[in-house]
Amino acid sequence: MKEPLYHFLFAGLLVFLVFWLSTDSQNDIVISQAEVQRMSTMWESQWRRPPSKDELQRIIDLRIREEVLAREAITRGLIENDSVVRRRLAQKIENFESDVASMAEPSDETLIPYFESNLDRYEIPAVVMFRHHYFSSDRRGAAALADAEREISTLIAIPTDQRELMGDTFHEGHDFEASLPRLARVFGDDFALALEDSITTASIGTVVGPIPSPYGAHIVELQHYVPKHLPALTSIRDQVLTDWRLSQVENTKDRFYTSIRDKYRVTVAGPSD
């Protein structure tokens, strides 16, 4: 056993054995079929076609390279004090928690309070149904309003079912069933406000006005009015659910943090002397 070659071979065998025995699953890199499929899909979403055989091999090689380097970096402790990795991990666990929240199926006991504290979001605007008699300022000039005022008593004297249109032709027609914001677009903001005011003071079926607009003056026969109201929760449950889930995501992140925060004893060094 004095031959250096044997010493060398024996030492080599020993080294091999030690490594062979100590190699456990931590050093296996297994790229599963699912993982290959995922990489292939990612590639496809970007290039709009499946990767060729060579391209797929290249993606897999890159993936292996990344894995080997990443594991080596972890082994050598490079992960400690890396702010990017730390932020990413923190973000990951937060997102995981909030994903769970975003899939939750809350009961009505949970949804109703949320719905009630956000009523303004779900309100359905008021709708007015009316006929108007139009007195054009282009045709009558400053007399439009006076003409309308004169005609209003004539109109009231006629039974409702025998009334015919008086005045001039309006470019958007004479019969409306629309929300106040929509009417503000057709007749102007001031008209819509005046109409809303007159509805609160007059009753349905009466004649109000004349209400001025940038186009002239309008005698309005109020026919029907549906005030702004809230839909039943059941009819818009999906929408409320989506909004509730969104609101939960932020809450969940904070709750999760609070729940694990106490596991850690935190010491912040004071200013050094």
Binding site: A184, V186, G188, S213
Partner: peptide, 8 residues
């Protein structure tokens, strides 16, 4: 040609 003003 016809044109109607924006009431606002």
């Amino acid at each position: 040609i016809t044109a109607v003003m924006d009431p606002n």
